[in-house]
């Protein structure tokens, strides 16, 4: 595997302490290369969410190591001082529900991240439009999220996840609300984008339709990951 991308070694997370302690994550090992899209599959309560939150730097794991590209971001503790900036600049999020900001139009929803990072409004919007064009939703740039279809919303969400060119994108059930055709379209976009922007994408899902599209799949059960080689059948 390439040394760029994200690597997780022996990650564990324990909630609480003493007798009531729960080990949500016991031993998680993952390694996703830039440009690669992997699936993360597990039943409810398997530790999937905890893993995602750890990767998203919103909770602090108990032990283990996470490396983003060349940078070790976690080893026993966070190795970066500004987790917000880390999330903003290095990690893209795509959610089950798109969670677009309802009072911002499509362009600004996407451009918000670079704006927060201090990029000028016009440049941020230009970058957003570029990305929206690539995702083929630029014609709705002036629309508000409530005026978009589910697929359009998800594509805008993807654009938002990609806008800062993060090395890693975490996608949480990105296809759940979509029919299979649109789900496949989303997967294709993710694959295209992964290649185009050299991004490592982790797709958390239990959507049977899209599981065959992954080349590699991580299963998680009781806080332990196992790796499986997938079919890698991308739709045309």
């Amino acid at each position: 595997m390439s040394k760029h991308g994200i690597r997780i070694e022996h990650l564990s997370k324990r909630y609480g302490s003493g007798d009531t302690a729960v080990d949500a994550l016991k031993d998680v090992n993952m390694n996703v290369a830039p440009g690669e899209v992997v699936g993360l599959i597990g039943p409810s309560g398997s530790g999937k969410s905890t893993l995602l939150k750890s990767l998203g730097a919103v909770i602090t794991p108990t032990s283990g190591k996470m490396t983003l590209g060349e940078q070790t971001i976690f080893e026993q503790d966070w190795k970066v001082s500004d987790l917000r900036a880390l999330r903003r600049d290095k990690i893209g999020f795509i959610f089950q529900s798109p969670y677009l900001i309802p009072f911002l139009d499509v362009v600004d929803n996407v451009a918000l991240l670079p704006m927060l990072a201090g990029v000028s409004n016009s440049e941020a919007r230009a970058r957003a439009l570029e990305l929206l064009t690539a995702l083929d939703v630029h014609h709705r740039a002036q629309a508000f999220p409530s005026q978009l279809s589910g697929g359009e919303q998800q594509r805008v969400a993807i654009a938002r996840g990609l806008i800062n060119r993060p090395p890693v994108i975490l996608a949480d059930e990105p296809t759940a609300p979509l029919d299979s055709e649109r789900a496949m379209a989303v997967i294709r976009i993710l694959n295209d984008m992964a290649k185009k922007f050299e991004t490592a994408i982790i797709v958390v899902t239990h959507d049977e339709k899209i599981i065959p599209t992954f080349k590699r799949i991580y299963h998680i059960r009781d806080g332990v990951t196992t790796e499986e080689v997938g079919e890698g059948r991308l739709p045309d």
């Binding site: 919103v58 917000r84 880390l86 999330r87 600049d89 969670y99 927060l116």
Partner: peptide
């Protein structure tokens, strides 16, 4: 009403001050 959006804003790295 927009607690979810605020969570998203925070997740994607908006500062508390903002």
């Amino acid at each position: 009403d927009k607690i979810r959006e605020i969570a998203v804003l925070k997740l994607i790295g908006t500062r508390n001050r903002t």
